[in-house]
């Protein structure tokens, strides 16, 4: 099936095999179609079907609020083709670098563990190695739940057949219900990855500040792992602010403490508690980790004041936290847009 994409950078064509949606089919073939969440939420991959038969996989995708259905608009991440088609994309569509192309993987879940009452960690053994950058995510789907979900990799290696993920339970979230209520050890997942542009790029030579809430810390852990592994933090500094409600909601403290030790003084990790005062200034079990009271972006603003030299910022978490952190990075850190990285899922 021939897919013709009309874009602001001209016309591109690819041959689709109908195995997945138009976004994934295009990305896999090296076409840099616009996207952020890749899973039906954000509306970034809005497109108009000019010719051909295209159906939507998930008719209730929240991102469809951004499309004009009367004008035959769709979300590429939900659009399946049934024959040749012509689709108009209101964005620049450049070829993707060969090394970064996402691909389909199959994986088996193992090492499932509950980290807190509403946070779960699991790992996936892939059928082959994936290369990805710290901060990237994959779209995961299982047989029992309709639609794919985007989760950032918690771990990082240049190429690995093991991925780690962390998921916070979301009320009514079908995928998180499945993870929390089923024995998912040994279950099969389909994955498309790597995805996402909010990546750690060591070649930029920047100090970094990460502000994360809840399971948004996944990508920050991957960044910490990458930065401590290759001596990056011998010559740069990293600052990670991790927001949770109470001490009982903390997780990955041992893992972060380990990264702090490896960084020999150039990585600071602070857990911000929004709903209680910390018992002491450092974590009782892991004194390498600082504790503070307040919303995570406010804690970060207090501690980072005057220390934004040569900085790149990473943000992930629930929408109000992301908004607060972005304001802080623009207004106080005065970082330009290209050095503020977050997945624009909202």
């Amino acid at each position: 099936m021939k897919v013709t994409i009309q874009s602001k950078t001209g016309i591109a064509e690819f041959e689709a095999d109908g195995s997945s949606n138009l976004l994934y089919e295009g990305l896999k073939r090296g076409l840099g179609l616009p996207y952020e969440c890749a899973t039906g939420t954000c509306g970034t991959c809005r497109a108009r079907v000019m010719d051909g038969n295209v159906s939507l996989a998930w008719d209730d995708a929240p991102g469809l609020a951004y499309v004009k259905r009367a004008k035959n608009e769709v979300l590429l991440c939900q659009a399946h083709v049934h024959g040749d088609c012509v689709v108009r994309v209101p964005a620049k569509v450049e070829p993707l670098p060969e090394a970064a192309l996402p691909a389909d993987f199959t994986g088996r879940i193992d090492a499932v563990r509950r980290l807190t009452h509403d946070v779960i960690h699991f790992e996936v053994q892939l059928d082959r190695a994936m290369s990805f950058a710290a901060g990237q995510f994959a779209a995961l789907s299982c047989e029992d739940v309709t639609g794919a979900r985007a989760y950032s990799m918690v771990n990082h290696a240049n190429s690995t057949d093991r991925l780690a993920f962390v998921v916070k339970r979301k009320l009514g979230g079908k995928f998180s219900d499945w993870l929390f209520e089923t024995d998912v050890n040994g279950r099969t997942l389909k994955l498309l990855g790597p995805l996402g542009r909010a990546t750690f790029r060591p070649e930029e030579g920047k100090n970094f500040v990460c502000i994360a809430g809840g399971s948004g810390v996944a990508g920050m852990m991957a960044i910490a792992q990458h930065a401590t592994r290759n001596g990056y933090l011998d010559t740069h500094t990293g600052h990670i602010f991790f927001g949770v409600r109470t001490m009982e909601d903390c997780f990955y403290t041992a893992e972060f403490a380990d990264q702090v030790k490896k960084a020999k003084g150039n990585l600071e990790v602070t857990i911000a508690l929004s709903n209680e005062e910390p018992p002491q200034p450092t974590h009782p079990d892991h004194p390498e980790i600082n504790l503070a009271s307040g919303f995570v972006h406010e804690v970060a603003a207090r501690q980072m004041a005057g220390r934004y030299d040569n900085m790149v910022g990473f943000v992930a978490g629930p929408p109000p936290m992301v908004d607060g952190a972005l304001r802080m990075l623009i207004m106080e850190a005065r970082l330009p847009a290209e050095f503020i990285r977050y997945d624009k899922f909202g």
Binding site: D323, L326, R327, A337, K344
Partner: peptide, 27 residues
């Protein structure tokens, strides 16, 4: 938000210089 004459929409970081109305930044 406005900083240094530049208006940035915090949703996706589109930004403009308010004095010149020129587009600002990479997004």
């Amino acid at each position: 938000v406005i900083s240094n004459c530049v208006l940035t929409c915090t949703k996706h970081l589109w930004a403009w210089n308010l004095a010149t109305l020129e587009q600002h930044g990479t997004e």
